[in-house]
Write a protein that binds this DNA or RNA. Structure first.
Length: 246
DNA sequence: CTAAATGTTAAGCC
DNA sequence: GGGCTTAACATTTA
């Protein structure tokens, strides 16, 4: 479920609840005051990176599905305790499981920079390149997972983007030539759009070129698989056709 | 059956 | 305090 494009699909799935009044709310999260939700009408549903934002008149519910989170609409899952359940008129309901739930009371504009959200209309590639340049000594495999620069990018997007732009994951950001860096950002946004399209058609896996693959589709060399970077995340790459800068 | 995985946060340690 | 490592969370899939 979790990367940015999947959260956009979640937002779409919840559109029928916009303008609907929450009649009851409960769940197993100890951290939120369920009492302040009933009576509020959902004004809007937004996303920022991997965050789902359910906007109410004076508070926003922030859901992060983490690695294994899931949701269900109208029918709660059997034998499972939801972290958050929202109930509406006519027996309608939404349930979120195995996720992080928070209430945000500050204005969203103070919490979120929409120009850093890879799925946003306000996405700004120029700013992303500037932020990358400010972190020139880091590895590109780490930078592509950084939510302050590429909010919504996850391990699949990282792997596919590096393969498509022919950049070795251990390349040092500052050693990547400017044009190639721009190409990298363009590929990341382009692949994220395709991710959304393919996930919607339920064909995401079919289109993986490197992620979880064993053979390079370009030159048929075996792909390397290594746990690398600050977060030791699974990384698939072709030693032959992905160039190492640095 | 066991292990690993699309992710983040908090605690603990130097 | 900073920076790093580890654990915790919880569920599905290989």
């Amino acid at each position: 479920m979790p990367e940015g494009p999947s959260i956009v699909l979640l937002k779409e799935a919840l559109q029928s609840f916009v303008d609907k009044k929450i009649v009851n709310a409960d769940g197993s999260s100890k951290k939120i005051e369920y009492g302040r939700l009933p009576g509020a009408k959902i004004r809007e549903i937004k996303t920022w990176g991997k965050h789902l934002l359910i906007c109410l008149p004076d508070v926003t519910i922030r859901i992060h599905l983490l690695m294994f989170g899931s949701y269900s609409i109208d029918t709660p899952k059997q034998n499972r305790i939801a972290k958050l359940s929202l109930f509406f008129a006519r027996g309608r309901s939404v349930h979120f499981y195995a996720c992080s739930v928070k209430l945000i009371t500050e204005p969203l504009s103070r919490v979120y920079d929409w120009t850093a959200d890879i799925m946003s209309k306000k996405w700004d590639s120029g700013k992303a390149v500037k932020k990358m340049n400010a972190r020139s000594s880091e590895l590109v495999c780490d930078i592509l997972l950084d939510q302050d620069i590429f909010a919504g990018s996850g391990n699949i997007i990282k792997n596919e983007t590096l393969f498509r732009s022919k950049i070795h994951p251990k390349s040092v950001v500052g050693k990547i030539p400017p044009l190639r860096k721009k190409l990298l950002v363009r590929e990341l946004i382009g692949y994220s759009k395709m991710f959304l399209k393919w996930r919607r058609a339920n064909t995401l896996k079919r289109h993986w070129l490197a992620y979880s693959k064993k053979i390079c589709p370009r030159d048929h060399h075996p792909l390397a698989k290594e746990y690398m970077g600050k977060s030791r995340r699974r990384t698939f790459f072709c030693e032959t056709c992905q160039k190492l800068y640095g």
